[in-house]
Amino acid sequence: MPHTETPGTGAAPAARPRWWTELPLIVLVYACYSAGRLLVGGDVADAVGHGLAILRVEQALHLNAEHPLNRLFTREPWLGIPADFWYASLHYLVTPAILVWIFRSRTAHYRAARTWLMTSTFIGLIGFTLLPTCPPRLLDAGHGFVDTMAHYSAYGWWGGEASAPRGLGGMTNQYAAMPSLHVGWALWCGVLLWRYGGTRAAKAAGVVYPLVTTVVVMGTANHYLLDAVAGAAVMGLGLLLAPRVMGCADRAKAWFTARVALASRVAPDAPDAPDAAVAAVAAPGAHTVPGTAVTPATGVSADAKSPNVSGGCQTSAGERIPRQREQRFPAAAEPDTSPADAGGGAPAPVR
């Protein structure tokens, strides 16, 4: 059983998350991410303009990593084809595998890791919405880029439209290039492997995977260098916001739990009041005085009950304690039931 106590807090071990609640949550977040990329296509002219603006900024900064990598991958199939497979598959395989590994083996860190990933993903979706960007492969051929996935499409399941399977290219937003969540998610995987891998091989994979992914997204002409930088920045921002997101989620859960608990306490008590009134009216021989409480079981007011507990264990008229024996008085010694007081005098007149 993995240790789930938060280091340095002395808190009790946290409960292991339940996979049947986590899986729908992750699927829902990914569905929102995919739907958002699909729905927010943006204007093509704006997307192309943003892509060219990024190229101009990189030229001003003397950054030009995309062209040499893209020419290398286009010229050397032994590099270009594996790079296309890397881009089209590992993004969707390694990330969930790391999430499952953290869930099973590093439970104490799972919630923070999952919240970090989801927060960063939603930030990336905002970037796709506000800044639709044409990737290098979709620019005019005069800019010197070759779409390697279209170039080597005969070797894979994809066609000429990003990494979507053939015939399904219209179901993806090809202008969601800024930021690069391929790089962002790979960085997330690398950080977790480095921190919690425990072996040199895991730490090495934590360094290699995001670096190779960054090279691949540029060499296949799917992203600019600044897209990769933005993807890393989004993950950094998500890491900073994750504790606040968890705090808000905890407060919302506590409020909802309190409301449910309050409703469960109040709801069963509501039908009892009418039942008590019905019992008071329906009980035979029940007489109540205004302002007195009525006992639901007998219909007799609390003030009308006799406080006397005699040797016969009588409590009030018509009531007996279970297994009580009835007291038989001799005929000659029947108790005086007249309203006279103990002194034998006449009762005081009622004024």
Rank of each mutant, 00 (worst) to 15 (best):
P7C: 00
T9H: 03
G10S: 07
P13A: 04
P13E: 09
W19H: 05
T21R: 14
A31V: 01
C32P: 10
C32A: 05
Y33W: 03
Y33H: 10
A35Y: 12
L38H: 10
V40H: 12
G42T: 02
D43H: 02
D46A: 11
V48F: 10
G49K: 06
H50R: 06
G51Y: 09
L52T: 02
I54F: 07
L55G: 01
L55E: 02
V57F: 11
L61A: 01
H62A: 09
L63T: 06
F73L: 05
T74D: 10
E76K: 10
D84L: 08
Y87Q: 12
Y92D: 13
Y92T: 05
V94T: 08
A97E: 12
A97S: 13
I98S: 10
V100R: 08
V100D: 09
I102T: 08
F103C: 00
F103R: 04
R104A: 14
R104V: 08
S105A: 11
H109G: 11
Y110V: 00
R111K: 14
A113Y: 03
T115E: 12
M118I: 05
S120N: 03
T121I: 10
T121V: 08
I126Q: 13
I126L: 15
G127T: 01
L131V: 02
P132N: 01
T133L: 06
P136T: 05
G142W: 04
H143I: 05
H143M: 11
H143G: 14
V146P: 11
M149V: 15
A150W: 14
A150T: 10
H151S: 07
A154T: 09
A154L: 06
Y155W: 14
G156A: 11
G159H: 06
E161G: 07
S163E: 15
S163W: 15
L168Q: 11
L168C: 14
G169N: 11
G170F: 14
N173T: 00
Q174W: 03
Y175D: 02
P179M: 12
P179F: 12
S180V: 04
H182G: 14
G184Y: 11
L187Y: 10
C189Q: 03
G190Y: 01
V191S: 00
A204W: 15
A204T: 02
V208E: 15
P210C: 04
V212K: 04
V212R: 04
T213R: 05
T214I: 04
V215E: 09
M218T: 00
M218V: 00
G219K: 03
H223Y: 13
A233H: 07
A233D: 06
M235I: 01
L239K: 06
R244F: 13
R244E: 13
G247A: 13
A249T: 06
D250W: 08
A252M: 15
A263M: 10
A263K: 14
R265G: 07
P268C: 06
D272L: 07
A276F: 13
V278I: 13
V281W: 10
A282T: 05
A282E: 14
A283R: 00
H287A: 02
A293Y: 03
V294Y: 08
V294A: 03
T298W: 13
V300G: 13
K305R: 15
N308F: 13
V309A: 03
S310K: 04
C313P: 04
R320L: 06
I321C: 10
I321D: 07
R323I: 09
Q324D: 11
E326S: 14
R328E: 05
A333M: 05
E334L: 12
P335A: 01
T337D: 07
T337A: 08
S338Q: 05
G343Y: 13
G345Y: 04
P347L: 11
V350H: 08
